[in-house]
């Protein structure tokens, strides 16, 4: 069984958007869920959040940044190529209902999973204030899409090349300080950004959710590799999450667990790039 790549585009340096023909996944997908893919027989199983889906046409969009060996290899594939495996939707869908005003914060490729949430919160009748950010303007993704899906859109870049010069969390704090009644904040991005964001929002009377991207194998609750401590209890990101109450997440443990295979990852990338240079790939 193979899953065809219908579209592929580099939307920012080293950030790619891929549209996959996966009708079973598309039919059941909901905002906040993820998929696991495997490029070929020797590949690893990699979880990626669903960035978009269309039930009628049976397509699912994922957005990924080249980081490790697998994402680098994935980036080399083109339209018409196929993936060996593409399973989903996995994870508990985001709890989206009418709450009033919701702030959605996305950092880096974390904007990709924020996008379907923006659409869903808007469709559920919420006022959606989105804040998206990146290191610089070039790395900013889905600006037009987010503009359309949100009531208000703010942009922050670390170097000030676009929007607010600083962090997405600065803007979030400003809105929370303005006295506007906000029911929920959803923050998705690198773990350190979610940790900082959760810390900034914590003093306010607002629900704070984060979506975690732990290391996992099966994505169905079988391996427990994705376990994370939430409110003193062990939870599995793949089935109990990926969304959790940010105030309760043990981010330090999360970040350490994410670093578990860093040495192996670096080695795999070096080996892969060496092979590529030799023209073996």
């Amino acid at each position: 069984m193979a899953y065809r790549i219908l579209e592929k585009e580099e939307i920012a340096p080293s950030v790619h958007r891929m549209v996959i023909d996966a009708p079973d996944v598309a039919k059941a997908a909901k905002a906040g869920q993820f998929i696991i893919l495997r490029i070929d027989e020797r590949g690893e199983r990699v979880p990626l959040t669903i960035a978009d889906f269309e039930r009628e046409t049976g397509i699912v969009t994922v957005i990924f940044q080249e980081m490790g060996k697998t994402t680098k290899q994935l980036a080399k594939l083109s339209t018409g190529d196929s993936l060996e495996d593409f399973v989903g939707p996995l994870g508990t869908p985001a709890d989206i209902r009418k709450l009033g005003t919701v702030i959605l914060v996305g950092g880096g490729v974390g904007v990709a999973p924020i996008y379907p949430q923006a659409k869903a919160y808007t469709n559920a009748g919420n006022r959606v204030i989105s804040i998206i950010g990146a290191r610089n303007e070039d790395l900013l993704i889905l600006e037009d899409e987010m503009e359309k899906a949100s009531s208000e859109l703010y942009i922050a870049t670390d170097d000030g090349s676009k929007g607010h010069h600083g962090f997405v969390t600065d803007i979030m704090k400003r809105i929370l300080d303005s006295g506007e009644k906000v029911a929920r904040v959803v923050i998705i991005g690198p773990p350190i950004m979610m940790k900082v964001g959760a810390g900034v929002a914590s003093p306010y009377d607002v629900e704070i959710l984060v979506s975690l991207n732990s290391i996992m194998v099966d994505g169905t609750g079988m391996c427990g590799g994705c376990r994370v401590t939430v409110g003193g209890e062990t939870k599995f990101t793949c089935v109990d999450g990926p969304e959790f109450d940010a105030r309760k997440v043990d981010f330090v443990q999360l970040m350490n667990r994410l670093a578990m295979y860093r040495g192996e990852e670096t080695e795999a990338v070096e080996k892969y790039e060496e092979k590529c240079r030799c023209g073996l790939h």
Binding site: V217, D218, M222, C223, G224, G225, R227, V228, T229, T234, Q253, N256, R257, A259, M260
Partner: peptide, 16 residues
């Protein structure tokens, strides 16, 4: 300490 890196369920260890 069960969530330290390097602690596996047998399921995960064997599946890998």
């Amino acid at each position: 300490g069960e969530n330290f890196s390097g602690v596996y369920s047998a399921n995960e260890f064997l599946t890998r």
